[in-house]
Nucleic acid binder design. Structure first.
Length: 481
RNA sequence: CGGGGUGUAGCGCAGCCUGGUAGCGCACUUGACUGGGGGUCAAGUGGUCGCAGGUUCAAAUCCUGUCACCCCGACCA
């Protein structure tokens, strides 16, 4: 096998690096329809692992899964003014079915607030029916102008949680709780450090009163919104008549929330950790945590047999220890396998051949290190089991340090302009949407969020208008995906 | 929706200007040698040149139309 053309480097063209890597690492393939990508097994396995971890956290927080239909009567979108304005441009609509034109066109869900609102109205009569704490795993379709694998696709997979509560305080608490769940998934599983914050008015979800977000920094310094949690107030309750009798037999509108995390998280993982050699996957979500490459010459049947026996023992022990391990026993050259698994971002690789057996050791290659470690066979399983959480910690710290190094606090306009070229800028802002827009036009950067735990803006003036800060904390400016 | 580009083997491309047997690299198949960082040699498989018209003795190539996709912007998880 000859050398493949190298991946473009991140430094020369980050975008090309990403676009080529998702194909080379076998995560996706192009579908026949624009912007609709096939998620291949290696990419889908990542999603399955994300699903498994998130789903467990949802359930631990008291939620149940259910499923709503994908087709939504068009008229439902008209009921909430902000919502229809936000979503109608990107709706895909079914106008024909069963060989005839439909009386009312059906939208393919871009998100399910409307159809769920309609049904929640039916399910809620009394305060005793609340809260409703439901989630669904599904696909949605948004006809975006421009698409990129995982980051923005015509159809994507996600989960959408929809809850209804008797009080505002309870609903707002739910929104925070679920944001924390997303932050945990990002940091403790994906090793992606995130900033938790609130969206400004202009960046809010269509129809929401408050939108909370987790924002991560990609390796080109740009921000990626990786999960959102919305307090919808009583907007959708009013639009869909979700009312109930409270303890005092007074009729009241419910307070609803919605929160979603999509396959975009896979893009966040790729762009937070990947390097010029390819992917680097976080061990807790990686389809294969350890790949074993057996060595041995084809004419050395005895050596191969010994290696195979040792590999079988190793794999059994690792599986018993809960490690996801794959043996690459394909008939290909070892070098080709090394490059492939490195590009696919497998955290740890074990090379094992007759020479190693004679020495009683194995070679362990760590995706974050340049050199291989020689590890005694007797302690190999323990070494690998311990190396995985350590790998996670180093990966997270690497991403955190990268973000810190590219985050500056700006006190002047010039500092803001210079800062967003490299990464995040912390600065005070007056909160005027017109100023936000002007900043975007001048710098291509937007307010990513007002951090929940951030730098106090008390006494600070807006970096753009010089007016007093409109928020308690300084905001995060960045260019975004 | 604006700007740019591309449709030729599974992938990446050349050929088109100047019409005349459809080519190269990788991948794939078979065999031998090889095997600790993208192996070598040899022999092979695979194409209605995006689609529809037109010009011509003859079209991947020229003309007209059309469709699709990709990339860069504005909009969005």
């Amino acid at each position: 096998m000859a050398k493949q053309p190298a991946l473009p480097t991140q430094a020369e063209d980050f975008s090309a690096w990403y676009n080529e890597l998702v194909y080379k690492a076998d995560l996706v393939d192009l579908g026949p329809v624009r912007g609709a990508f096939v998620i291949k097994p290696y990419g889908y396995a990542l999603w399955e692992n994300i699903q498994r971890e998130l789903d467990a956290m949802f359930k631990a927080a008291g939620h149940e899964n259910l499923y709503f239909p994908m087709l939504i009567p068009m008229s439902y979108f008209q009921r909430e003014a902000q919502h229809v304005e936000g979503f109608s441009p990107e709706l895909a609509v079914v106008t024909h079915a069963g060989g005839a034109e439909l009386e009312e066109p059906l939208a393919i869900r871009p998100t399910s607030e409307t159809i769920i609102g309609e049904l929640y109205a039916k399910w809620v009569q009394s305060y005793r029916d609340l809260p409703l704490l439901y989630n669904q795993w599904c696909n949605v379709v948004r006809w975006e102008m421009r698409t990129r694998p995982f980051l923005r696709t015509s159809e994507f997979l996600w989960q959408e949680g929809h809850t209804a509560h008797a009080t505002e305080a309870e609903a707002r608490a739910e929104v925070r709780t679920m944001l924390d769940v997303y932050a945990r998934l990002a940091e403790e599983f994906a090793a992606v450090p995130v900033i938790k914050g609130e969206k400004t008015e202009g960046e809010r979800f269509a129809g929401a009163v408050e939108t909370l977000t987790i924002e991560a920094m990609m390796r080109d310094g740009k921000a990626l919104q990786s999960g959102t949690s919305h307090y919808l107030g009583q907007n959708f309750a009013r639009a869909f008549d979700i009312t109930f009798n409270d303890v005092d037999n007074q009729q009241a509108f419910a307070h609803t929330t919605s929160w979603g995390l999509s396959t975009r998280m896979i893009g966040a993982i790729i762009m937070s950790h990947g390097d010029d050699q390819g992917l680097i996957l976080p061990p807790k979500l990686a389809p294969h945590q350890v790949v074993v490459v057996p060595m041995g010459r084809s004419n050395d049947e005895e050596g191969r047999t010994r290696v195979r026996a040792e590999v079988d023992r190793l794999v059994a022990a690792l599986r018993a220890a809960g490690v996801r391990v794959k043996v690459d026993d394909r008939d290909a050259s070892p070098g080709a396998k090394f490059y492939e698994w490195e590009q696919k971002g497998v955290p740890l690789r074990v090379d094992l051949g007759p020479k190693d057996l004679d020495a009683g050791t194995a070679l362990v290659k760590d995706r974050l290190k340049d050199e291989k470690d020689t590890v005694p066979l007797s302690g190999l399983v323990d070494h690998l089991v311990a190396a995985l959480p350590d790998f996670h910690a180093r990966l997270f710290e690497r991403a955190r340090a990268f973000r810190e190094a590219r985050t500056v606090e700006a006190h002047t306009w010039d500092e803001l302009v210079a800062g967003v070229e490299k990464g995040f800028v912390i600065a005070a802002h007056c909160g005027d949407p017109a100023s936000e827009k002007a900043i975007q036009e001048a710098t291509k950067a937007t307010v990513r969020c007002i951090p929940l735990e951030g730098v106090s803006a008390a006494g600070s003036v807006c970096v753009h208008t010089g007016r007093p800060s409109g928020y308690a904390n300084k905001v995060v400016f960045a260019r975004a995906y």
